[in-house]
Design a protein around this nucleic acid. Sequence first.
RNA 1: GGGCGUGUGGCCUAGUCUGGAUAAGGCGACAGCCUCCUAAGCUGUAAGUCGGGGGUUCAAAUCCCCUCACGCCCGCCA
Length: 557
Amino acid sequence: MLEFKNEIEEKVKELLDVDRPVSLETPSPERGDYALPCFDFASLLKKAPDVIAKELVQKIDLKRGDVEQSGPYINFSIDTSYLVENTLKSCLEGTFGRFPHKDESVIIEHTSANPNAPLHVGNARNPIIGDTLARIYRRLGFDVITEYYVDDMGRQVAILTWALDNIREDDLPEPDYNKPDHEMARYYQHASSMVEKDDEVLGAVQSLIQRMEEGDEEVIEAFIDYSKKVLEGHKDSLARLNIFQDSYKTESSLVLDGEVKKTVDELRESKVCGDEDGALYLPIGDDRIFLTRSDGTSLYPARDIAYHIWKSRRADRLIDVLGEDHKSHARIVKKALESLNISPLPSFIFYSFVSLEGEKMSTRSARSVWLDELMDNAEERAKEEILTRRDDLQPDQIEKSAREVGMGAVRFNIIRVQPEKHMDFRWEDALNFQGSSAPFVQYTHARACSILRKWGGDEEILKEQDGSLLDHESEIKLVKTIAKYPEVLLDSMENSAPHLMAKYAVTVASEFNLFYRDCPVLQGDEKTVSRLSLVKAYKEAISIILDTLGISAPEYM
RNA sequence: GGGCGUGUGGCCUAGUCUGGAUAAGGCGACAGCCUCCUAAGCUGUAAGUCGGGGGUUCAAAUCCCCUCACGCCCGCCA
């Protein structure tokens, strides 16, 4: 399909001899697969749009498709038997949706949550966007490293450290979960409110920060140690979402190995910075961003700049997934990197915050839904659903399927929304497994598996099918939709828009459901084998599409 | 106050970058479809001034200006 599109674009460009990019649109299906409105060329060629369309249609000759004029529009339709044969082949041979390896690497930084509390559904948006994006880049042939930047030297960790050394566990509530992040969050939350009320506690926390800055080994060790424990909790939660990071970089390592100091020195010499009482700052418009305190110790922006310099040595592209609260900060970091002639510069993908049933979510006020809690509820709900409709599955099959469906539902519910849009988390929506949801898509995979299981033949013979007997509208539409995958993949990457992949998954699944309704497979007639090959092809394709979203494809549910 | 972002049927969202042929899905509501490959499915109905106002254009949800609402940021915190 992508080939066909590219061919049209090239031919049109050549025939009209124009520089401007030819942008094709997708018309309603009965008109064709792609359409070109000719209004744009009217002023250029000094002819009426429908005349241009008419002339162009006569001249254009496509290898694998038809051209038709419709007033000022030209509609292009691909040769369906060619498309069917090729799409089936690529799915069945395992080449579907696989782009050639690019000699280009990208580091996608995501999650990078403060190591003071468990992940909640608000910051869960970050890993889900980041991991999905990573999967999209991998499919497109990039070498991808996903990285978690561990902020183990910040104020939040200082508060946590003070709390662990000064608060008795007896004074704290039971943890929500027996995981290190939940256990330690109790200390943090308790201390956090003390810091606000009690100046003595505030002073103690500040002195911890001071000692850490001065290189006090005992304090630094405590910071690193405690944040590591919280991080272990984050890793466990992420693993349940099928998210595994390739690399973890701690802020402390950048400070301890002198990387930060080196960067600060370079910035000081670069003349782009100002100096006030020994504190180094970067002028941005009328504002200034401080990089160091007047005692010379580094501030977060300086460390972040150092981190990005370190990253830039390791890849051709850098992408950071960040909450919208980091927007202005990130742009400043980028500006600083630019002035130091660092390449590649990072590009950012910002996501908006998640509110909870209409109200603001916050870890400190405990107005949040833990990711672990959401996962548990989703799995529990999935299990209930399975139990109401299946009585033929073994307990371990039920557990496995419930995990797959629950995890998918959570990921999908979050990735389906464009990152920059606000999200309001509602239990009702998150646990709704109908319509536009992961279970809807997964269900079609289970159905396809079920058909193949019931048939019971050797699936190898399906690979020989060319699909020439597939001519029903629902069959053709399903194949066409499957064949759109590479376009969606490219679109998602180019626009940093992973939600498009979620949208697409639902579209393909809907087409499968229509095929399922209109075209009975196991009728034992002459179409059975052709249709089985389409079912098998769909099963392979939807597995890959779900995998792009990090969602697994259950064999039964 | 300044900067950035968002505003599409009762609710959630796609489409906005790159303006085009009747504004697309889902949830909820209502009415139907399991003697037939899993009904987590399918079909139909009701429901829309694309926040509001101006402008550009043959053509605006989409581009420009103004305005309103909401979110985020504006620390020698991170």
